[in-house]
Design a protein around this nucleic acid. Structure first.
Length: 456
RNA sequence: GACAAUGUAGCUCAGUUGGUUAGAGCAUCAGUUUGUGGCACUGAGGGUCGUGGGUUCGAGACCCAUCAUUGUCCCCA
């Protein structure tokens, strides 16, 4: 058969894995620097854990797992009946009851709901794992990709927001990616919906205004009309959006919004939260059009976009005051952020931001002349490894120049040769692959030569 | 779900209005060089032209269908 990859998935070659690890390592070390602890959850969850948490569009993108054993004859009648329901777009336990996880937040909420009493609150966890979405792949969008999440549950404090924003700043600084970090507050959006006629309009309004920069004011108004919003409501929204188009000063924007929503309590709360954050950060932009699709957010919402490059957001997050409420455990507030490693990788690759020598495979190759020198070779291998020098012996005693070519392609720093002459003189030959210089030295002298490339 | 582009050697791609035996570069293998890599030179292997039909004396090229990949819209990291 002809081997192929499932749509939207990729193999990662060694060079790519090294680069991805470079990103992971920076994110992980920042998470740990800020006191977050690692957590992992299963690749798949019960379907009902995930369904209904990501909106109608999200539900369609969940990868469902077909139950096993449906072919058993005694199950045929039930399976046929169940499958008819599947054909109508329903999920039936008889056909599918498990699904690949769609993000890390909902499984985390499930975990917290199950373990609330054992957790040392406020609980700060980070999680780096793949997630799956049955989306049509395109630029910057894959069906399997890795998210890096950090969340704090069990605390209302805005200090958590400050810490998370600081992590974003630190990580992208270390990665050398220029980004725009935008924030908004769901309470402000809720106020807008209230002023326009009711909180039930929130989704319609946010979906439309979120597109302002993409499709322009006229198209946004068109979309609002299509959603049957009143003329008064549309004029309020236009006024709201005009602030965004006229200036980018956070505090000026805040005061304008404050005036617009002067008699709405929830707006006052949201504005107070935003003002608190802007006092600590100068380089974060207040974006009144930022909405974020997930409807479990209740306060601060955050999105990170790379500058000067056509790519969706590379990070996002926000506050949710009752995420575990979905699992009947109320009153556990939380806030979290997420990094999209695959898009970060694409941005860095496109902008050439990876450091030049990022790989760490074995740096020393021992040439295999013949099995009669095996004992000496093995002795040197152990000796070097005891001194933290990564090395390998070519496993077959094939032609010399083949082995040298292998070393060259693997980009090793040194080649060590042990053959008849070396054995006779109780020395080893070591060749520097960059300079081409070769010398005959004692076993002990190897260490001082190789010291600079040891893995400390 | 809608639309578009692409599909020729392991990889990246040429292939003229349809016309001998389908090419190049890189990669692979062998040799120049049996204990010295990169560089160079010489040579070799490697293709049911995505698949199935059709038009034609003749199809890699034209038509239809189908599959796959990629991109755009929607939505998202």
């Amino acid at each position: 058969m002809k081997p192929t990859l499932p749509q939207g998935t990729r193999d990662f070659l060694p060079e790519t894995v090294y680069k991805r690890n470079f990103i992971f390592q920076i994110i992980r070390s920042q998470f740990e620097l800020f006191g977050f602890e690692p957590l992992e959850t299963p690749a798949f969850e019960n379907l009902e854990t995930l369904m209904g948490k990501y909106g109608d569009e999200g539900d369609k993108l969940i990868f469902k797992i077909l139950n096993n054993g449906l072919e058993r004859v005694e199950k045929h009648q039930q399976a046929n009946e169940d499958f008819q329901k599947v054909l109508q777009g329903k999920n039936v336990k008889g056909i599918t009851e498990r699904a690949l996880k769609y993000d890390l937040t909902i499984p985390f909420a499930r975990f917290v709901a199950m373990n609330k009493n054992q957790l040392n609150m406020p609980f700060k966890r980070y999680q780096i794992q793949p997630v799956w979405r049955a989306d049509r792949p395109q630029r910057g969008r894959y069906r399997e990709f890795t998210q890096c999440d950090a969340d704090i549950v069990g605390s209302d404090s805005l200090i958590n927001e400050i810490e998370l924003l600081q992590i974003y700043i630190n990580v992208f600084q270390h990665l050398k990616i220029p980004v725009q970090i935008c924030i908004n507050n769901r309470k402000v959006l809720a106020a807008l919906a209230l002023k326009c006629g009711g909180i039930h309009l929130l989704t319609d309004i946010t979906l439309a205004i979120d597109k302002l920069d993409k499709i322009g004011l006229n198209q946004v108004v068109e979309e609002l009309k299509r959603k049957q919003l009143s003329d008064d409501a549309i004029s309020t929204i236009q006024q709201y959006l005009s602030f965004h188009q006229n200036n980018t000063n956070n505090f000026l924007l805040l005061s304008q919004i404050e005036t617009l929503f002067s008699n709405i309590d929830i707006a006052t709360k949201g504005i107070k939260e935003l003002r608190f954050l802007f006092n600590y950060f100068q380089n974060i932009q207040f974006d009144v059009t930022l909405a974020r699709g997930l409807n479990y957010y209740t306060g601060t919402i955050i999105e990170v976009k790379p500058l000067d490059i056509q790519m969706g957001s590379i990070g996002g997050g926000g506050r949710y005051n009752d995420l575990t409420g979905l699992f009947d455990v109320p009153n556990v507030p939380g806030v979290g952020i997420s990094f999209g490693v695959d898009r970060i990788y694409d941005v860095m690759e496109e902008k050439n931001l990876f450091p030049p020598h990022i790989h760490h495979s074995a740096q020393v190759l021992l040439i295999n002349f013949d099995n009669q020198y095996l004992n000496k070779n093995l002795e040197i291998l152990s000796f070097l490894r005891e001194h933290h020098i990564a090395c390998e012996l070519y496993p077959d005693s094939i032609k010399f120049d083949k082995q040298m070519k292998y070393a060259n392609k693997k980009n090793v720093a040194f080649v060590i040769l042990i053959g008849e002459d070396e054995l006779k003189n109780n020395k080893v030959s070591i060749k520097n692959f960059a300079t081409g210089k070769q010398q005959s030295v004692s076993k002990e002298d190897l260490i001082s030569i190789l010291e600079p490339i040891a893995n400390k």
